[in-house]
Simulated assay, not measured.
Amino acid sequence: MKHQEKPPEENLTNLMEFVLLDFANVPYLQGFLFGVFLAIYIFMLMGNGIVFLITKLDPGLQTPMYYFLGNFSFLEICYVPVTLPRMLRNLCTQRRTISLVPCATQMCCGLVLGATECFLLVMMACDCYVAICNPLHYPLVISYKVCAQLVAGSWISGIPLRIGQTCQIFSLPFCGSNLINHFFCDIPPILKLACGDIFVNEMTVYIAAVLLIMVPFLLILVSYGKIISTILKLPSATSRAKAFSTCSSHLMVVVLFFGSSIITYLKPKASHSAGTDKVLSLFYTIVTPMFNPMIYSLRNKEVIIALRKFLCK
């Protein structure tokens, strides 16, 4: 990682607000983008809300797999409002300013919920691993109490590190410019505005990304390596197809979320591009939550049956 030092101490200003540029470079598309993102927001809330409800209410979905899925859908309902409502407000009013405290709060909430999503995806991979590789021990290993403890740990584990990381970043002095070339207050664009020696802060970002993104991703890869190995040893093609179908939905979400997150936070600083960071951020903040209900419902017969019963009621 390239050491970065910004020397202009005489140009330091005590910034009290920032300006989120988001789609300011395409003023002729503001109305269209507002309509698109509003539709995505409504669809995401309704889709994940329905998946959450049917996993809680349908008697046929009271299993550990659907317990994790319900919590994952609830997480997505919490995750997207961190960024999308303000983006919609900016597109509608053209007022793009955000003060220091709301910016720090937005970053902290996004980082905490992002860490929770990483851990929950690991828990879902472990559930899939035990179900396929050790089916006889599944009821003992993955009990309701264990599920509740794993989910609680997923929600809590990232909080101390992410709060400390946010406080560290916003304790930095900032240069004269207050323009954030991004949709929301994220780490890379905020660090671009910081003055002085930010090498320690960059190292902290990389270490946190390795611990909270890369390590969970590697655990999921190891789990799926063993899962695929076990599936290929199954005697019948029907059993193999059913096993692959059980895990393929989760794997699609993993690729979408972790792929964009790893590139954003772990790629070399020299290759950072505002345009690329914007596109990648859309994947892990909006695209994954939007496709989550479709991926899990359209590829899962039990969810489709429960959904039909729910809609009929």
Results as ranks from 00 to 15, higher is better:
C108L: 12
F68P: 02
N134E: 15
C133A: 12
F72I: 12
A125Q: 04
V80H: 00
L100N: 06
E76V: 03
Y129M: 12
R95N: 11
F74S: 11
R96Q: 13
N71C: 13
A125W: 10
L136K: 15
R86E: 11
T97Q: 13
F68G: 10
C126F: 15
G110A: 05
T116Q: 08
M124C: 12
A115D: 14
R95E: 10
Q106D: 04
E76D: 10
C118N: 14
E76H: 14
I132W: 10
T105V: 15
L111V: 09
L84T: 01
L121C: 03
G110K: 03
L88G: 02
M107F: 09
P102D: 03
L121D: 03
Y66T: 03
F119N: 12
G114F: 08
C109Y: 13
V82N: 00
C128R: 13
T105H: 04
M87K: 02
M107I: 00
L113H: 07
L120S: 03
C108K: 07
E76K: 11
E76G: 09
P139Q: 05
M107G: 09
I98W: 05
P64H: 00
L91P: 08
M65A: 14
P102R: 06
T83M: 09
L88N: 01
L84C: 02
C78K: 01
T93A: 07
C109G: 07
I132S: 07
G114W: 12
F68K: 00
V112F: 12
I132C: 05
M65Q: 14
V130A: 10
I98D: 02
L136H: 14
C109L: 15
F68D: 02
F68Y: 15
E117H: 08
L88R: 00
R95L: 10
I77Y: 04
Y129I: 06
R95K: 12
C126R: 10
A115I: 01
L88E: 02
N71E: 14
C103H: 06
Y67H: 14
A115Y: 07
Y138V: 00
L91W: 04
C126I: 11
C92V: 09
I132H: 10
C103F: 06
G114C: 08
N90E: 11
E76R: 04
A131L: 09
P81Y: 05
G70P: 02
N71P: 10
G110H: 06
V80A: 00
M107K: 06
L113N: 05
Q94C: 03
L113V: 05
T105F: 12
R96F: 13
I98K: 01
G114N: 09
I132D: 07
P135Y: 08
P81N: 03
A115N: 13
S73L: 02
P102L: 02
C108W: 12
P64D: 01
T83S: 07
V130G: 03
L75A: 11
Y129V: 04
N90C: 05
L84H: 00
